[in-house]
């Protein structure tokens, strides 16, 4: 089985970082990563690949559509077969966390991302 994961972050280097960090898993066909560099791009990707994406990892602070807005849109547009959404942010304060969880995020991680922890979480799905 391969799990489709969409990573949303305005930093383009996130792509190569994830690809290197999850090299073995990608090679082993456990994960399949796609990348979007803005909230808008992420929505477009999901429209083009309906019901494919199982997991979304999204940054919160992005220019244009923020991660929180993206989360709202996803929860509104895909009420059936909803993907899992994990928010990743540099601002790990309680207010940010509570807001994301309230809007239906499945998990909340703070930067810098602990990739071993993330890997475990993804493998549990």
């Amino acid at each position: 089985m391969d799990m489709k994961i969409l990573v949303v972050d305005d930093e383009e280097d996130v792509k190569s970082l994830f690809e290197q960090k999850f090299r073995r898993e990608i090679r082993g066909g456990q994960f399949e990563f796609s990348f979007a560099f803005s909230g808008e791009e992420a929505l477009e990707f999901m429209q083009n690949h309906p019901s494919e994406v199982v997991m979304i990892l999204s940054d919160i602070n992005m220019p244009g559509m923020s991660g929180i807005e993206l989360l709202k849109k996803i929860r509104a547009d895909h009420p059936s077969a909803p993907p899992q959404v994990m928010m990743i942010t540099a601002y790990g304060d309680a207010a940010n966390h509570d807001q994301a969880m309230q809007l239906g995020a499945d998990d909340f991680l703070t930067k810098p991302v602990n990739f071993n922890e993330l890997k475990e979480k993804l493998l549990l799905l």
Partner: peptide, 17 residues
């Protein structure tokens, strides 16, 4: 913090590589 995270993450992954 953001660029620093990249420095740390990439150097870590390079060790693994």
């Amino acid at each position: 913090q953001n660029p620093l995270n990249f420095v740390n993450n990439f150097s870590e992954v390079s060790v693994e590589l």
